[in-house]
């Protein structure tokens, strides 16, 4: 298998990496770029722990070939906090105890951010359906929904 050279943008920064043709974007992020925030919970798109955005669309990075990142814009959990501090969602997740083990948290934060960018005032049901592809085994989702709503309210009033 000959390697492929890829030029892409991750969290606003230009990144070049080399990958094999069958390598997933998740593996490239974790093993080539050292961005281990996205997790592999299943490798088959069923758990959402590897969620990132690709050209603004929420995707499972385990279901994207690394080679497809050529020329794309990728955003991961590592890019959520800015120089001014944590993203409101990140703060809300801590304040509302919306994480226990925390391994699903990066994926859920990326997914919730994508939701609030499209729908700043979602109903609880919309939050739950949007996040249905992000499994959390610890919290029962209750505090996650509350944290997303708290962050949404804060972002609306900002």
């Amino acid at each position: 298998m000959s390697s492929i050279s890829v030029s892409t943008t991750v969290n606003g920064d230009p990144v070049d990496f080399v990958c094999t043709p069958d390598e997933s974007l998740l593996d490239a992020l974790r093993n080539r770029m050292g961005l281990t925030g996205a997790k592999e919970g299943c490798g088959t798109g069923d758990c959402g722990a590897c969620s990132v955005t690709l050209n603004g669309r929420l995707v499972c990075s385990c279901l994207v070939l690394a080679a497809e990142a050529e020329g794309a814009e990728i955003a991961t959990v590592e890019g959520m906090a800015g120089p001014e501090g944590l993203h409101p969602l990140q703060r809300a997740f801590i304040d509302h105890a919306a994480l226990q083990c925390g391994v699903c948290t990066p994926g859920i934060l990326v997914a919730a951010k994508a939701l609030l960018e499209r729908n700043p005032d979602p109903s609880d049901e919309e939050v739950r359906y949007w996040l249905a592809g992000n499994l959390c085994r610890c919290t029962g989702y209750d505090k996650i929904v509350r944290a997303v709503q708290a962050a949404a309210a804060e972002m609306r009033s900002a």
């Binding site: 959402g48 669309r57 929420l58 995707v59 499972c60 279901l63 994508a114 996040l131 249905a132 592809g133």
Partner: peptide, 9 residues
């Protein structure tokens, strides 16, 4: 079909 993530693809 699938999750929000899958819908994106």
């Amino acid at each position: 079909i699938g999750s929000t993530q899958v819908q994106g693809r």
